[in-house]
């Protein structure tokens, strides 16, 4: 039964190849970031750095802008994760009650699901954020997406699995729902709460679009927005007036090693939490997708 046959070796090889393909862009970017500028621009770098040097990383440190944006992103993550997770935890508990115990439950639920299905769109949402005076503040990155209906539903489904007898005895002893949430539900749901906190963290770290539309001052820009703005942008008019050779040259001028180094450094926080994420997300995803 345990003897490996030829087909087992083929499967092994194919899967190793697939795994490798998943790493190609990252390995390539690491190699480029550690290569000489000209060698990288000439296309001599695949997976090994050419003329190894760390000047791209030194430039990042010297430039300052990168780490400033890094700091904005860290602040955004801290605020976003604490507010977002707290709201999901607090809302998931009453929503896990049946409508017999909590009569307004389904009305809230429909409202929440409706916001998942339909949205006002770019301009109307922008106008609300603007009228609240949040433009160019960190709050414009944190508050509009503060309530994650999806995460709340995941937690709610977890709460539903907690035996009601635990809560009933506490209610008889005179505990109020807030005490029950803090003393019974939160300790039992720790792993699920950690899962949604990690997902919220990755979301806030990776999100760039809010930073693009709600932030106009450079010193409030989060990291991903800053990096996104680096790519060379050519307008149609510019491109129409250029020969293909000129376009190639213009695009090559964009600093390949520098940008690759920035991409690599900005990945680091996600790589750090990835082992924890991996431990939790299988259960988290299955919880959310397959329900009894």
């Amino acid at each position: 039964m345990n003897k490996l046959r030829l087909s087992d070796y083929i499967i092994l090889a194919v899967l190793l190849l697939i795994g490798f393909i998943c790493l190609v862009p990252i390995l390539n970017a690491i190699a480029i970031s550690l290569s000489d500028k000209t060698a990288a621009a000439m296309g001599e770098v695949v997976f090994l750095p050419k003329k190894f040097n760390t000047s791209a990383y030194e430039e990042i440190v010297k430039e300052g802008r990168f780490f400033h944006a890094f700091g904005v992103s860290i602040r955004r993550v801290l605020l976003g994760v604490s507010i977002g997770t707290a709201l999901s935890v607090v809302m998931a508990y009453p929503l896990s009650k049946s409508p017999r115990v909590f009569r307004q439950r389904n009305a809230y639920m429909w409202l929440m699901v409706f916001t998942m299905l339909f949205n006002g769109g770019l301009i109307p949402t922008y106008l609300v954020v603007k009228n609240l005076g949040l433009i160019n503040t960190i709050w414009s990155l944190v508050l509009p997406g503060a309530v994650s209906v999806y995460n709340t539903i995941i937690l709610m489904n977890f709460n539903k699995g907690i035996p009601p007898s635990l809560e009933e005895s506490a209610l008889i002893d005179g505990a109020n729902p807030l005490q029950i949430l803090v003393r019974i539900y939160i300790p039992l749901a720790k792993a699920s709460i950690a899962t949604i906190a990690l997902f919220t963290m990755v979301y806030h770290w990776n999100e760039f679009f809010m930073g693009k539309i709600y932030i106009n001052t450079l010193d409030q820009q989060p990291l991903q927005t800053y990096i996104q703005g680096l790519s060379v942008t050519l307008t149609t008019q510019q491109m129409a007036s250029m020969t293909p050779e000129e376009i190639i040259r213009k695009l090559a001028v964009s600093n390949v090693t520098f940008n690759s180094a920035k991409a690599i450094v900005s990945m680091i926080p996600v790589i750090i939490v990835y082992p924890f994420l991996q431990r939790f997300f299988v259960t988290g995803l299955v919880m959310g997708a397959v329900k009894e």
Binding site: V90, P94, G120, P124
Partner: peptide, 19 residues
Amino acid sequence: MMVIGIGFLLVFSIIPMFG
């Protein structure tokens, strides 16, 4: 317990729908 979260949804999701 629902009030704050629903408030956020009203402001940032429901009001823009009227927009």
